[in-house]
């Protein structure tokens, strides 16, 4: 179990918090959690199946108690300076094989242990990358803007703000798959579907799609994809397919440029 706290976490919207918690599984945890606060209650109020009237008031009082005790002891504590972390892009075949978009593909020979060296070597062979290559500039064939982790309404708004008035690069096939039917309906109400369509994205029905590749939405062997989903394991998006995980804004910018790019420079 991982609990997230701190200014940077408190400043996140509910949907952003959900993405962080969702990715805890990729760190080997069973769950991730963030103590509820006023933002949480505002998010829940008025939602389907949320309590109403006096039941709401007493529920909120109960939820306010759902905080970690001050004297709680953790197995490990990790402090990160969010302001020093740039947009993250995976270069390997686990979500942990990740670096700043400004970084270069690491050299396996420089890693600490034999197991890590072998794993990184194997990952680079699978991904078709060379040590030292800048991550920005790696050309892509496909873009998958989707998944329950990273295709909520805020994600689609953020991505739409990047692609509005622009067009997907030639030879790149890009698709948007909303995280749920509710998100899809909301996005259409806001006209986001039009923004994506005009930019050359396919606007698809909600579902797992290329996150998992159980339907026909799969990568061919050697195809390279900028994906907003949560997993980049070998074959995850299709046998031999190469997945780079990144945020919705980063994936949107990659679709326009045709290669990995630092969205902050836009």
């Amino acid at each position: 179990m991982i609990e997230y706290t701190g200014d940077a976490i408190r400043a996140l919207s509910m949907e952003e918090r959900m993405t962080v918690c969702n990715m805890s599984i990729e760190a080997g945890a069973r769950a991730g959690m963030i103590a509820p606060d006023d933002l949480t209650f505002a998010y829940l109020q008025g939602r389907p199946r949320a309590p109403t009237g006096p039941a709401w008031t007493s529920a909120v009082a109960r939820w306010r108690a759902l905080r970690t005790d001050p004297e709680a002891r953790f197995d490990a504590q990790v402090s990160l300076d969010a302001s020093s972390i740039g947009p993250q892009v995976t270069w390997g075949t686990t979500p942990g094989m990740v670096a700043d978009i400004t970084a270069r593909v690491p050299d396996p020979a420089q890693l600490g242990t034999d197991t890590e060296r072998r794993a990184a070597q194997r990952a680079l062979e699978y991904m078709g990358l060379e040590p030292g290559m800048p991550l920005a500039g790696i050309p892509i064939d496909r873009v998958f803007l989707g998944s329950c982790t990273n295709a909520r309404i805020e994600d689609l708004r953020a991505a739409a703000s990047i692609v509005r008035g622009r067009h997907v690069a030639p030879r790149v096939r890009a698709m948007v798959v909303p995280g749920s039917q509710r998100v899809k309906a909301q996005a259409e109400q806001e006209g986001l579907d039009q923004v994506f369509r005009e930019a050359g994205f396919e606007w698809r029905n909600a579902g797992c799609s290329m996150c998992l590749g159980m339907n026909d939405d799969v990568l061919g062997a050697g195809e390279r994809c900028a994906a907003t989903s949560n997993r980049n394991f070998e074959g995850r998006q299709g046998r031999g397919g190469r997945t780079h995980l990144m945020s919705p804004m980063m994936a949107a910018a990659a679709a326009i440029e045709g290669h990995l790019v630092d969205v902050r420079e836009w």
Binding site: T94, G96, T115, E116, R118, A119, R122, L212, G213, M214, R231, F233, E234, G235, R236, R239
Partner: peptide, 13 residues
């Protein structure tokens, strides 16, 4: 002798 063997490898979708 591999680390991070994931369930997609153990049983593909």
């Amino acid at each position: 002798l591999r680390r991070d063997v994931d369930t997609d490898q153990i049983i593909p979708k």
